[in-house]
Amino acid sequence: MQLMATLRTSVNIAVATALLGMSSLASAERIEESPSAGAMVADAVIARPLYFVLSQAGALVYGATLPFTLLGGNADEAAETLVVTPLQAAFVRCLGCGKVENSVGSLDEGEGKMIRHFVMVSGGVSQEKSFVGEKFLSGGLYLGTHFSLVDDSRFDVMLGGRQLMASEKDVGDENLSSLEIVSRFGKAVNGWLELSGKLGLSRWKYKVDSDVDITGISDIKASSFDFFWGVGAAAQLSENWRVGLDYTRYDLTVEDNITLSGVAATDADALAFQARLADGIDTNLELLDLNITYMF
C-alpha cells in the first residue's frame, strides 16, 4: 500500500508539473538558441526534474527560515536564490536552451523585477472523498514573498497554515489542520489578472472527537506529510490589495500513524468503521477558496 501511495503521489506531482511546465513554455519569450535533439531530451528527462526538485527543496528551507530572514532583512534574496531561480530554469527556459530570458538574478529591483512581501487570508469549502465523505469549512493564513518580473511572470513563496472543520457531524467533531510550504508561479494577463499554479508540502493532522454510538471510538488521531497542487486566479484591486480564487487538491495517506482511543464497538457498523481505520487513511481533499492578500 505504501508503494502504491508513493507512486500515486509521484504521478500527481508529475502531472501538475507537466501542465505548469507546458503553460510556462508556451508563454516564454523566444531565446535565440538552436538546441539539438539530444539536448532537448536531456533537458526534459534530467535537467528540468532536477531543477524542480531543487526549487521545492529550496522552498522547504525558505519556509523553515522565513521568520529569521524577515527579521534579518534578506527574505527576498533567500526566496530568489532558493526557489525562484530554479523554478525559472525548470519552467521558463525553452526546451534544451541553456539560458533564461529575464532571469531573476540578472534583473535589478525596480528595473525588471519588483519584490514585495505579503500576508494572505483564505476561506472556503472542501469535499473529502473516499473515506468518510465529509464537507469541510476551511480557513488559512499565509506569509510570503512575491516576485513580479518584466516578462509578466509571477512567483510566490509562502509559509502558512490551514484549519478545516467538518460542516456536518455524522461521525463527530472532525477537523484537519495543516502547516504548509507553497511555491506558486504564473503569468499576469492584461496587467491586472494573474493566472497561476502551485505546488506544496503539508504537515497535516487529522482529529475526530467521535460519537461512540456511531463509530465505537471516542477519539481518532492521525498525521502525515503529503504533497498538494492547485491552480488559481487573482485580480489586483489596488497597489496593496488583491483578491483571488484557488482550487487545491490534497492527497492524504496514513498507514501507521493512527491512534484510536475509547474503543467500545457494539455493533456491525462500528466494527466496520474500525476495520477501515485499521487499513489506514487514503483519501483526498478538493478545496475551493477565496483569498485576500495585502502586499507590503
Rank of each mutant, 00 (worst) to 15 (best):
V61F: 13
G63R: 01
A64L: 11
A64D: 10
T65C: 07
L66K: 06
F68E: 05
F68T: 09
T69M: 01
T69A: 03
T69E: 01
T69Y: 01
L70N: 09
L71K: 06
L71H: 09
G72P: 06
G73Y: 05
G73F: 02
G73Q: 05
G73V: 07
A75K: 11
A75Y: 04
D76P: 04
A79R: 04
E80S: 06
E80G: 01
E80A: 02
E80L: 08
E80V: 03
E80D: 08
T81Y: 13
L82T: 13
V83M: 09
V84M: 14
V84R: 13
T85R: 15
P86C: 09
P86Y: 12
L87R: 12
A90V: 07
A90N: 14
F91T: 12
V92P: 12
R93W: 07
L95E: 08
L95K: 04
L95A: 07
G96C: 07
C97P: 05
C97S: 09
C97Q: 00
G98P: 03
V100I: 02
V100P: 01
G105Y: 02
G105S: 08
G105K: 07
L107D: 08
D108L: 04
D108R: 06
D108Q: 11
D108F: 04
E109T: 11
E109D: 10
G110N: 00
G110R: 00
G110F: 00
E111L: 06
G112R: 00
K113V: 00
K113F: 00
K113N: 00
K113Q: 07
M114K: 05
I115Q: 14
R116K: 07
R116V: 08
H117V: 14
H117L: 03
V119E: 07
M120V: 12
V121D: 03
S122C: 03
G123Y: 08
G124Q: 01
G124K: 03
V125E: 10
V125L: 13
S126Q: 06
S126N: 09
Q127I: 14
Q127A: 15
Q127V: 12
K129H: 13
K129P: 12
S130D: 15
S130I: 15
F131M: 04
F131P: 01
V132C: 12
G133P: 11
G133A: 10
G133C: 09
K135H: 13
K135P: 12
F136C: 01
F136E: 00
S138V: 08
G139V: 07
G139L: 02
G139W: 02
G140R: 00
G140V: 00
G140I: 01
L141N: 03
L143I: 04
L143P: 00
G144T: 01
G144R: 01
F147V: 11
F147I: 12
F147Q: 15
S148N: 14
S148F: 14
V150N: 15
D151I: 05
D152P: 02
D152W: 07
S153L: 11
D156N: 14
D156R: 08
D156H: 10
V157S: 14
M158N: 11
M158R: 14
L159P: 01
L159E: 02
L159M: 03
G160V: 11
G161D: 07
